[in-house]
């Protein structure tokens, strides 16, 4: 009679095309519409069963929203829909160039505190990382559309590397701010 939303994939649930390129404004818009229909606040005086279903559905919508709005999560989910499970811990093959670059960046990052303006240097790192992530995301989109799934997988791993680097930059920024104030 009606499909259970918990069995729908995230793209179907949000009624957007299955693609890496998503219209984030539209996703946000759909997120609000869905939330308005299912959120537990709409079921405060309902039966326990309705409350439970509302919580499950809202949790599911939140999970979908998290996956759709973040590029790396979205990429992983797209591959999962194709039956490709990224076993990230066991597969770390990566091209040598990329690893070299990574090591250089880590070294530069560890020197940053001795710079005159460490916060500005960290801002530069953030911009660099952001640009690289964007380029990788664009390449992922192409690989995915061409069904080059091995390439797509490799790109996800690289993006995860960059994500970790970004987190380190953020943490270091917070640490330096703490010392300054």
């Amino acid at each position: 009679m009606t499909t259970d939303i918990l069995t729908q994939n995230f793209f179907e649930l949000f009624d957007v095309p299955v693609s890496f390129e998503v219209d984030l404004d539209l996703v946000q818009q759909r997120y609000r519409e869905l939330q308005k229909a299912v959120h537990p606040d709409k079921f405060v005086s309902a039966s326990d069963q309705e409350k439970r279903i509302s919580m499950q559905q809202t949790s599911w919508i939140n999970e979908a929203f998290n996956a759709l709005r973040q590029p790396v999560e979205r990429a992983i989910y797209l591959l999962k829909l194709k039956g490709v499970d990224l076993n990230l811990e066991n597969e770390t093959t990566m091209d040598a160039m990329f690893l070299m670059e990574q090591m250089e960046m880590r070294e530069a990052l560890s020197d940053v505190q001795s710079k005159d303006d460490p916060l500005a240097a960290l801002d530069d790192f953030s911009v660099q990382i952001k640009n690289k992530m964007q380029a990788m995301a664009a390449n992922f989109s192409i690989a995915y559309e061409d069904d080059q799934l091995d390439d797509a997988k490799e790109l996800i791993r690289k993006m995860q590397f960059m994500q970790k680097a970004r987190k380190e930059v953020d943490e270091l920024t917070a640490k330096i701010e703490d010392e300054l104030f």
């Binding site: 259970d4 009624d15 326990d48």
Partner: peptide, 23 residues
């Protein structure tokens, strides 16, 4: 509540479908 269990579940799903209709 037990007798309505399936009914409630269907309602909650159609609720979402309705929210997404009319695009």
């Amino acid at each position: 509540e037990d007798a309505c269990a399936d009914y409630v579940a269907r309602r909650m799903n159609s609720n979402i479908r309705n929210a997404m209709q009319g695009h």
